[in-house]
Design a binder for these strands. Structure first.
Lengths: 195, 195
DNA sequence: GTCTATACGACGATAGAC
DNA sequence: GTCTATCGTCGTATAGAC
């Protein structure tokens, strides 16, 4: 493992990550060459390799960044709200808004086949944000707010519906912005598990 | 475009497709070399190129084959049953069983990012099987069996839940065979749209 | 620390014998 | 129609100047 040198400009690093997010979601990881990245970020190959060990490391960093941001958002929701009902509602609202404001990020984090290019990264289903979302449900079951049932089934019910909307939206099958559907979707989703 | 020569052995063609299904779902399309395919199918590179123009053509053929099989199954269900209730139930049952008997096929057809390696193939959301599934719902709404609502929302409700279970199953988050959950999932899913 | 130029390996695809 | 051997390309990564 090579040691990287000082990184005075966090800005350059972000530029690279931003370029990769765009490219990976449009062309895909394998169809994106380092030369593409260089061009999109408007720097040189040498600089790319000054900030990252290799192309894979960029993808890992990108996944980690986005994953952490989303996990943080979920953790904050758990702090800010104290019922499973309110937490899940806020989580779905957050995901819907993200899909509109940063579809590329949602695409990369939920839709990309990470196992194909990130060998050791766990599949998204077992990643931190979704684990936190399942935790909201587990606590709701414990408190009696949600009817007694298998946590996985509960998570499929509450989050499967909105996640399906997100996927259809990212695929342009759904044309209107997702927040339009928020309350409708929420009522359907919550009704399946409400005690 | 090159013309392919006679194909006396349909068997060899299938061997290649089978090998690719295994490899594409485990290693991914881009991490699978033609040499891998040759080895897995126990033939020579020359033979691979006798049956297919190039590597991409194999992926296209594979997607078409699997897509057609699934579309046929959905079309048969529409013929065999005459209510939206029974049709959707049968569709989900079929998908759950497929996930257990041929997880690789489900993985490839639902989970793979086809747009990354199949430029012109439409995303799975707009593919024939899912279109037929949405059609079941449209007719159910027309007949009054399903409450009046947006078709896309209805499809997210009825199929989003089981599709989420399928994804979690393919990711090994769900450990028990899906048919175990069939009736539970079905009741939750149908309850969201039943008139 | 950023650049340009280049080495090197891998892989898709073809040529040509049998 | 199946094989082996090989070609050409492309893309990652490095070397080395500034």
């Amino acid at each position: 493992m090579k040691k990287k040198i000082a990184h005075p400009s966090q800005e350059l690093r972000n530029k690279i990550l931003q370029a990769c997010l765009t490219l990976f979601t449009t062309k895909g990881y394998f169809c994106t060459s380092v030369d593409d990245i260089r061009r999109e970020a408007q720097i040189s190959v040498g600089s790319v390799y000054n900030y990252f060990d290799n192309k894979e490391a960029i993808a890992v960093a990108l996944f980690d960044d986005l994953s952490k941001t989303m996990a943080k958002a979920m953790a904050d929701i758990i702090i800010d709200y104290d019922s499973a009902h309110d937490r899940c509602h806020a989580a779905i609202e957050y995901l819907f808004e993200c899909t509109e404001t940063n579809p590329a990020a949602m695409h990369f984090i939920f839709y990309a086949k990470h196992r194909e290019f990130l060998p050791e990264v766990k599949s998204i289903c077992s990643s931190e944000p979704l684990t936190l979302m399942r935790q909201m449900l587990t606590e709701g079951i414990k408190s009696g707010e949600i009817v007694e049932m298998d946590t996985l089934v509960a998570s499929a019910c509450v989050f499967g519906i909105p996640l399906r909307m997100i996927r259809m939206r990212l695929d342009d099958v759904v044309c209107k912005p997702l927040p339009t559907y928020l309350e409708t979707i929420w009522q359907h989703a919550w009704s399946t598990v409400a005690a």
